[in-house]
């Protein structure tokens, strides 16, 4: 009897889990990471188990990944989110060779081969510049929901020039633009363009080869996706659940590694 395989990805903003058996996803979940990663991991495990429909706890082989991977007390193996993203995305889109994960604390650019093996990677700097953190800050300043950022940005008539790469300084630059009378739409379009430039800078440095996928929280923002597409002149691929790629990759690795 084969065991269940789980991938748990503890990120700085959200923690994600995927449960897997016989190459099929049986269920997934995504909850805010909060301040206690151990408890968050346990919560995900419980939720994943409930999705298998099993009444009693079943043996699960777990691969943990992400910033808080070490806090997943029940993990059998730990793998970096880079390897997990690579395996996850190739399973969803076999044609992808370049991926940028726009996360809360980092953005990560990956070049992968047809098997989902990592060929090259690059992380954004040591600070949150170039990550999706700036989107959260801007949403707060503009008092809009995160999911409204994309639609608002796409309605822009005249994007503002936005220059700051630093997530902290960006806040004051945004306030200055508002003071100058910029509309929410134009301000957001400017920010999306600035962030897209940073995303593309990472991708260019690992070398863009089509298909090019965006994943992570930032990929849920269609304004940002559009800005990256405009910069490249071609369409990107984005999975329907872009936050789950690393957890899925971890679950796939778990099934491969699990003792028969």
């Amino acid at each position: 009897m084969s065991v269940y395989a789980a991938g748990i990805d503890i990120g700085s903003a959200f923690s994600k889990g995927v449960i897997f058996k016989n190459k099929q996803t049986l269920g997934f979940c995504c909850i805010p990471s909060g301040g206690d990663y151990r408890a968050t991991a346990e919560k995900i495990k419980k939720e994943l188990l409930s999705k298998t429909g099993l009444s009693s706890p079943a043996p699960i082989f777990t691969v943990a990944t992400g910033l808080g991977a070490k806090m997943v007390g029940f993990a059998d193996v730990i793998r970096t989110e880079l390897s997990c993203h690579a395996r996850g995305i190739i399973t969803i889109f076999p044609s992808v060779r370049t991926v940028v994960d726009i996360g809360d604390s980092y953005s990560r650019a990956l070049r992968i081969d047809e098997h989902g093996h990592l060929l090259k990677f690059l992380l954004s700097g040591k600070c949150a510049g170039g990550s999706a953190r700036i989107l959260k800050k801007i949403a707060k300043i503009l008092q809009v929901k995160l999911e409204e950022l994309g639609p608002l940005s796409l309605r822009s008539q005249k994007q503002v020039d936005f220059n700051t790469n630093c997530a902290v300084f960006a806040e004051s630059e945004a306030v200055s633009r508002i003071a100058e009378g910029a509309s929410k739409e134009d301000l957001l379009a400017g920010i999306h363009r600035a962030l897209a430039a940073q995303v593309n800078n990472l991708a260019e440095r690992v070398g863009i080869e089509k298909d090019y996928a965006l994943v992570g929280g930032g990929a849920k923002d269609e304004g940002l996706v559009k800005a990256v597409e405009l910069m490249n002149g071609f369409n990107l691929v984005v999975p329907s659940e872009p936050l789950l790629t690393a957890a899925l990759g971890a679950a796939i690795l778990a099934e491969e590694m699990a003792p028969a």
């Binding site: 970096t80 880079l82 390897s83 990592l118 990677f121 992380l123």
Partner: peptide, 16 residues
């Protein structure tokens, strides 16, 4: 402090 933050990059390099 900054050396510690290189951990993920080094681990991913070794996994690669």
């Amino acid at each position: 402090g900054t050396i510690g933050r290189l951990r993920t990059r080094i681990q991913a390099f070794l996994e690669m």
